[in-house]
């Protein structure tokens, strides 16, 4: 352990004071700064962390080996900056943990709560409402009103859809754009969901391919939407993928919907992708001529807000729930290839 005092002005680096040779005639006691003697003959500076990481003067140590260093402002400043940068790095890492894992935990709790309150509500209305069943939604911001199933993303893939797309709503689960169509209705039933964190309901939205079922459960019905053909598939649809059995009812849409494909990436400003006729915000089509679409939006690429990933699906099937068989589910839910 060596100690280098800061080089004083005008002295070469590495210079260190040397004890003067002993004068035989000296009669006054000498204070040796480099080799301080026992207590009383040396100056002990106030407790201060030295550059070796140890704290304060260590009386027990061999005083010759490690004399307490004097105050060194430059060193303190540099060290403090280093500590600040390391701390900032730790905080940013912690933010990643928060964003990717922690919000999942929080949102899972909120999602469970929304699901169980929706289940209770459906059950209560089944018994209270009795035969007076019909399409009825209890829409309130942040409250669940339907469930979404995407069998292609796994048999256990289901989320409760809440009303609204504010940050607070989307913390709970996928959110329905207020004012857009409701499940099964003509127009565009538009739903937004997080891609990363917050339960990440739409994390794998890019893995859904054309004809894959997106099933929506409401209090009274099951609605089966299927993804429209993608840009590459439109040309040879009828002879190609469109011939597959699960693609029944799925075909490139015509008329005002011409050019609408199953998956697209748009800029965040393109709000017209969730218009009743997507990309045609100003087109006022009578409800009777509107197709029943469902559009899912999320961010893309992952961890970025630069673009939006959009999935357009079309209603192909609808099953009314049978109150006598509450556990009956549509066969589309088993399409988990």
């Amino acid at each position: 352990m060596s100690y280098d005092p800061p080089p004083a002005a005008g002295r070469p680096a590495g210079w260190r004071p040397r004890p003067a040779p002993e004068q035989p005639t000296a009669f006054l006691p000498k204070i040796d700064v480099l080799h301080p003697g026992p207590l009383g003959t040396q100056f002990i500076p106030e407790a201060e962390e030295d550059d070796t990481g140890r704290i304060g003067p260590e009386i027990g140590d061999d005083p010759v080996e490690s004399p307490p260093p004097p105050k060194d402002t430059a060193r303190t400043v540099v060290r403090s900056f280093g500590e600040l940068f390391i701390t900032a790095g730790m905080v940013i890492l912690l933010f990643v943990v928060y964003e990717v894992y922690w919000t999942d935990l929080i949102s899972a709790g909120k999602q469970n709560q929304a699901t169980s309150s929706l289940d209770t509500q459906w059950k209560d209305q089944d018994t209270v409402g009795g035969p007076q069943r019909g399409t009825h939604y209890d829409l309130a911001e942040g409250k669940g009103f339907a469930k979404i199933y995407v069998p292609a993303l796994g048999a256990d893939y289901h989320f409760t859809i809440v009303e609204g797309t504010t940050d607070a709503d989307l913390d709970i689960g996928p959110g329905h754009y207020v004012g857009s169509a409701l499940p099964g209705q003509p127009g565009d039933f538009a739903v937004a969901g997080h891609r990363v964190g917050k339960g990440a309901p739409f994390n794998d939205l890019d893995l859904v391919s054309s004809c894959d079922a997106v099933v929506v459960e409401t209090e009274t019905d099951w609605f089966v939407y299927r993804m429209l053909p993608t840009t590459d598939e439109v040309a040879g649809w009828a002879a190609g993928k469109g011939a597959q059995p699960q693609c029944k009812g799925v075909a490139p849409l015509g008329g005002p919907y011409a050019g609408l494909v199953g998956q697209e990436t748009v800029l965040p400003s393109q709000g017209d992708v969730i218009a009743p006729v997507p990309h045609k915000q100003d087109l006022q089509l009578p409800a009777g001529q509107q197709a029943s679409l469902m559009t899912l939006t999320t961010c893309t690429p992952k961890f970025s807000a630069s673009h939006r990933l959009i999935l357009h699906t079309v209603l192909t099937n609808q099953y009314a729930k049978d109150p006598k068989q509450p556990d009956k589910v549509p066969p589309e839910l088993k399409e988990t290839d």
Binding site: L94, E99, G193, F202, S269, C299, S304
Partner: peptide, 22 residues
């Protein structure tokens, strides 16, 4: 403090996870 107060406050201000259009 970071997890419950600071991060939830700062998160909407950062361009990581915005999923809606329009």
């Amino acid at each position: 403090l970071l997890m419950f107060v600071v991060f939830p406050w700062v998160e909407p201000l950062l361009p990581f996870n915005q999923v809606t259009t329009g």
